[in-house]
């Protein structure tokens, strides 16, 4: 069904597989519109949600996707501090594997941790965010939402706004969108744009108004409060002035533009409430597509119910 056993990241991920996932997500969207929202596709499969870092929406979205597909799920939340105290990552991984499971959905604060996990276990590994590296399922749901809105991805102009350097959402979106033929411009404070960003095949523009003029859609990233007031960013006011997606700013541009946000939002910081709640925002569609996309990914990776023990 898909060429790779795991979903670790979108760097180098085959475009036709991204398209397959998106198409499958649309069929699951229909399931979610039914009165009975459950299908038996993954009956008998066991999936562990292994979260080494706090997450509400990604975990719930995965869990819901698993339940809609009739998979058995177990949630495991470990604080990374317990790992620092002694239990090795390898132990945790092998313990879970020993319980005979089919797949692991993992979030971990360290880049590369999901790849590392595949060294220790045989189950399918799905990356639910590894530090500042990748968050492939988020990027796929973003692309599903864009595809739903525009009907195509090739040639689409997407601006990603905010803290790019610390964003796994940005990196996965960049890889995915480039693979699917979209154009990407990064926009944010120069201290929060990763070095060598152009090497990723994207443009960088520090002028958000120019990016708004250019783009078909904006993916507005969350600005973490802890980045404020340090060496990277002077203040919220400064950020809002330079990069905030405000009603005033959008009203200056006489054009339609689609607004996305991976959540959770800092209303009044990177995005105004009135923008987030407006018709041009597809933020809640993203949430719904998150469940559908994750259903598609799980279904395609775990092979439905027709085979046993496959990969």
């Amino acid at each position: 069904m898909l060429q790779q056993k795991h979903l670790l990241g979108l760097a180098g991920y085959p475009g036709e597989d991204i398209q397959t996932i998106i198409d499958t997500a649309f069929t699951f969207r229909e399931v979610l519109d039914r009165p009975i929202k459950k299908v038996p596709s993954l009956q008998g499969k066991t999936i562990v949600n292994l979260f080494f870092e706090n997450s509400t929406r990604t975990r719930i979205s995965f869990e819901l996707a698993q339940k809609r597909l009739s998979a058995d799920t177990v949630n495991f939340s470990a604080s990374t501090s317990s790992l620092k105290k002694g239990e090795t990552f390898k132990d945790t991984a092998q313990n879970i594997e020993a319980m005979k499971i089919d797949a692991v959905v993992m979030r971990h604060p360290t880049p590369g941790a999901p790849l590392h996990l595949t060294d220790h276990i045989d189950s399918i590994v799905i990356n639910a965010g590894d530090g500042t590296h990748e968050h492939p399922t988020q990027a796929i749901l973003d692309m599903t939402s864009l595809h739903e809105k525009f009907g195509y991805l090739k040639g689409l102009k997407v601006g990603i706004i905010g803290d790019i350097a610390h964003s796994r959402v940005a990196l996965s979106n960049i890889h995915g969108l480039k693979t699917m033929g979209a154009e990407v411009t990064l926009c944010g404070p120069s201290t929060l744009i990763p070095p060598f960003a152009e090497e990723l095949g994207v443009s960088v523009n520090y002028n958000v108004d120019e990016v708004i003029e250019w783009a078909d859609a904006l993916n507005v990233l969350r600005i973490q409060r802890e980045r404020m007031g340090g060496g990277l960013l002077p203040s919220v006011r400064e950020y809002r002035n330079l990069f905030g997606i405000t009603t005033d700013r959008l009203s200056m541009h006489k054009k339609e533009i689609v607004i996305m946000h991976p959540g959770p939002m800092n209303r009044g910081v990177e995005i105004d409430s009135s923008v987030a709640d407006s018709d041009q925002a597809i933020i809640l569609d993203q949430v719904l597509n998150g469940v559908a996309s994750r259903m598609a990914i799980l279904y395609l990776l775990l092979g439905g119910k027709q085979e046993e023990g496959d990969s």
Partner: peptide
């Protein structure tokens, strides 16, 4: 090392 590869890997890096 901070460079193209560190940007890809998402690892904190120094020039």
């Amino acid at each position: 090392h901070e460079g193209k590869v560190s940007t890809h890997l998402g690892l904190p890096a120094s020039p």
